[in-house]
């Protein structure tokens, strides 16, 4: 019998294949950053006014709301789930916060206190959809779609047709003011990013979310409390949606259900374009930051180039298809449903 048990030719080849694959993965994780830089270079040359201080602040401003939304979704997607509730819930929070501050419709006027209150409401609703998903074992995608619909309805009911105009001076300051030249809304996004970064990298929660997304069976064997971790993800999502709802109300100056529209799709695009895998366990908040800027830069440049908004929407669709195609594993025997 041959004695070279340890090094078979096929074994060597297997090791080589694994190495190749991990090199490829390494490159893929850098790809979003490279794409962002390439886009910036291209648009600087082709789109007049793109590479300017003014537009830089513009970009920061435009990225603020999508970034907070994407950071909320990042943990959900890292875990391998999806959540669409932001459209209805964000719209509801925006509508309700307008009714709670100094406004054109009622004299409730809770002032600044309204903000933490509506954020708590948002967390509560998100916890509820979390429970339906975790305890009721319903797919997160369908639960959140249902919740979104319900909250959209409640949003319109809350102001009975005509949205409340916000007259609270605090909101005017938040909309227009800046610190160090950076708008307040952008600061909110920056702070949210820092918190998300710490959550992902400096807490057990962050590791556990990654573990669940990578392989839930292993996570269970390791002894991770899976349901509790998932529940916390929904709390974080609710917090982010609450903040986004308020930011939206600040930006449009009234409490309109429309604040929630076009939140979810660009946010999922940002998360996926950044390299977070829809099947979970890969990516993270830094990827989302890059992804959010890729999406914002493209939208911004398309406006500067004078492209029709309908085409912009189509471009966004193409981006997400391209990003998904690049990020999902390819294999003959992969069963995709």
């Amino acid at each position: 019998m041959d004695k070279q048990v340890h090094t078979s030719r096929v074994g060597e080849e297997f090791a080589q294949e694994m190495k190749k694959q991990s090199q490829k993965e390494r490159f893929m994780s850098l790809a979003p950053l490279i794409i962002l830089l390439v886009l910036i270079v291209i648009f600087s040359v082709t789109a007049q006014g793109f590479f300017s201080i003014n537009n830089f602040y513009n970009l920061l401003n435009q990225a603020a709301i999508p970034l907070v939304m994407s950071l909320g979704l990042t943990f959900v997607i890292l875990m391998g789930s999806t959540d669409l509730s932001a459209e209805g819930l964000g719209g509801f929070i925006g509508s309700v916060v307008a009714l709670m501050v100094l406004n054109s419709k009622n004299d409730m006027n809770l002032g600044a206190f309204a903000i933490p209150l509506v954020v708590l409401i948002s967390i509560g609703v998100s916890m509820l959809s979390g429970l339906l998903h975790i305890k009721g074992k319903l797919p997160s995608f369908m639960v959140s779609y249902g919740v979104s619909s319900i909250m959209s309805g409640f949003a319109v009911l809350s102001y009975r047709g005509v949205p409340a105009r916000i007259r609270d001076p605090l909101f005017t300051v938040m909309a227009q003011g800046n610190f160090l030249g950076i708008p307040y809304l952008t600061w909110i996004a920056i702070v949210t990013f820092v918190i998300a970064y710490i959550l992902q990298n400096r807490t057990r929660f962050g590791s556990y979310v990654m573990a669940i997304g990578d392989n839930e069976a292993i996570a269970k064997n390791i002894g991770i409390n899976i349901e509790w971790t998932k529940f916390k993800v929904f709390v974080w999502l609710g917090l982010c949606i609450g903040i986004v709802g308020v930011m939206g109300a600040v930006r449009v100056g009234q409490g309109d259900v429309g604040i929630g529209s076009d939140l979810v799709f660009p946010a999922i695009t940002s998360v996926v374009v950044g390299g977070t895998s829809l099947s979970g366990g890969k990516g993270g908040v830094v990827h989302t930051l890059i992804g959010a800027f890729i999406v914002t830069v493209i939208n911004n440049a398309l406006v500067l180039l004078g492209v029709s908004p309908y085409i912009q929407q189509a471009v966004q669709g193409l981006i997400i298809l391209g990003a998904v195609a690049l990020s999902v594993p390819h294999g003959k025997n992969l069963i995709v449903k």
Partner: peptide
């Protein structure tokens, strides 16, 4: 049973 996206220590 390692989680690929976490560090060795984690």
């Amino acid at each position: 049973s390692l989680i690929l996206n976490l560090s060795v220590a984690q």
